[in-house]
Design a protein around this nucleic acid. Structure first.
Lengths: 135, 135
DNA sequence: CTTGACTCTCCACTTTGTGGAGACCTTATG
DNA sequence: CATAAGGTCTCCACAAAGTGGAGAGTCAAG
């Protein structure tokens, strides 16, 4: 029987807002026990581990559903590591995609921004560019 | 008096889904007239211009509220182009920020992915990495 | 007149939480 | 023991930017 704690301490230990911990509990990402009389959630160190895990994975752009998946891999250590790697490589791919999109976005915006003198006169090539049907 | 059309044609001409056009109309980004008897929205070529403008700006990561702002500059040509340029440069800054975030994200993920052999064995350094409190 | 295509409004759902209201529980203090 | 403070509960609403569907009304053609 490990250490038990309420949601406040769980939040502190996992570096997550209380609201977020409650949310993760609501959607079943973690399943803390409940004190039947007080209705308070009871967190174990295992729950904290999971919360830390999720907090980290979320920072790395894994979605909640992906976290759920990773969590099940995390819990079931008999599964192969290839599944985890697959998910991670997919994430890297998505990041690459996003980066190249942002790159061309920036190029186009920089181009029009450069062509705009940014003075008090009303003529603005940015507006013209955005209003143009073509391109 | 220019050409008038219903929402279906407006959507087609602006390359936006009908639902989206209706949504933009609901939030007052555009203000098509309404046929009082049929309750159908009536779009002019001016409205199409605006929709194209917004569609373009949205692609360039301008938020709806920014579009609203740009639209007012677009309508009021007496305003200075410096406001438009300011908004655009802010966008470019945000894109830079996002890109550097994604960059470090990718670096870390690539690092752990490389260290994972991705075979059938349960040991997985990615899981270990994500589960680690530190870092 | 009826059929089919089009449009209307209203509601729900998406994602990942955040904020608040009102009620309940626990602990400490007087 | 009573009360106050602080912690927790559930439920509802909101964020952005739409998307999907239900049920009803409209329009044009055959």
């Amino acid at each position: 029987m490990g250490f038990k704690m309420n949601i406040g301490e769980a939040a502190k230990k996992s570096n997550l807002p209380i609201k977020t911990v409650r949310f993760y509990s609501d959607i079943g990402l973690i399943n803390p026990k409940t004190n039947e009389t007080s209705n308070y959630r009871i967190f174990t160190n295992q729950d904290i581990e999971k919360l830390l895990f999720v907090g980290k994975a979320r920072k790395f752009n894994f979605s909640i559903e992906e976290c759920r998946e990773l969590l099940s891999l995390y819990e079931n250590r008999t599964r192969s590591s290839s599944e985890v790697k697959k998910l991670t490589l997919k994430k890297i791919d998505e990041i690459d995609q996003k980066m190249s999109e942002l790159h061309s976005l920036k190029n186009e915006l920089s181009r029009v921004a450069k062509s705009c003198n940014g003075d008090q006169r009303p003529e603005c090539p940015i507006i013209g560019f955005l209003a143009n049907k073509e391109n």
